[in-house]
Amino acid sequence: MRLEFALACAATLVMSAPVVAGDFTLTSTDISEGAQLSAAQVFGGFGCSGGNVSPQLAWSDAPEGTKSFALTAYDPDAPTGSGWWHWSVVNIPASVSEFPSGISGALDNGALELVNDYGATGFGGACPPAGEVHRYVFTIHALGVEVLDIPETASNALAGFMINANTLGRTQITAVYTR
């Protein structure tokens, strides 16, 4: 009974979070909507040969009341049953509106990079099974709290729950990759 109630509450929070807010926009000089990721954003390992460089991302026109941001990069097509988290960053100050290319591992603004599904902290590039096209969804979430109260070792599931519970709006770019 408790588990059913918790799941129902979680589903309500996720479904009630706005998908977009006004003119909140995400842009990038490295990735484009529907376009193939470059070798720079491909993982270097697991049979893939790439630069494993986090892309440049810039966001603007966040919703009123935004106190911080969170970034997620997710592959919903991974053959895991739960997708694949490539990058999660929380507690990005509201004063930040851009990440330059290659910033992963060098954030010094109080933001917290979580462990990706490769088991490493920070950005982990694309590396789908050979012959498969996968989508890579880069999302900036505008949050109504300054800091998410989660441990540095938080799972991406816990981070996702807390992000969605505090989201005022979100914007995204979905790129693809195949090898």
Rank of each mutant, 00 (worst) to 15 (best):
M15P: 02
P128W: 02
A10E: 12
G169W: 00
D30H: 04
E113K: 02
A21C: 14
P76D: 09
S32V: 05
T25M: 08
H141D: 10
G47S: 13
T72G: 10
S60A: 15
D108S: 15
V96F: 08
G105E: 09
A17W: 04
D77M: 03
D61N: 13
V145W: 09
A8R: 08
V145D: 11
L112K: 10
P55F: 09
P151T: 12
V20S: 15
P129E: 13
V133F: 04
C127I: 12
A8P: 03
T66S: 13
E146W: 10
S82I: 04
W84P: 00
F5N: 10
N52E: 14
N164C: 09
A130P: 14
A39H: 01
T12F: 11
A175T: 13
T72S: 12
S104K: 07
R135N: 14
E146N: 09
L71I: 12
G81Y: 02
R179E: 11
I103Y: 01
A159N: 02
G160C: 08
A165P: 06
L168C: 08
V176Y: 03
A175S: 15
E98K: 10
L114N: 03
L107A: 11
D61F: 06
Q36N: 10
V53H: 00
S16D: 12
G45C: 09
T139P: 07
F5A: 15
L107T: 13
L37I: 04
N156H: 09
A165W: 08
Y136S: 06
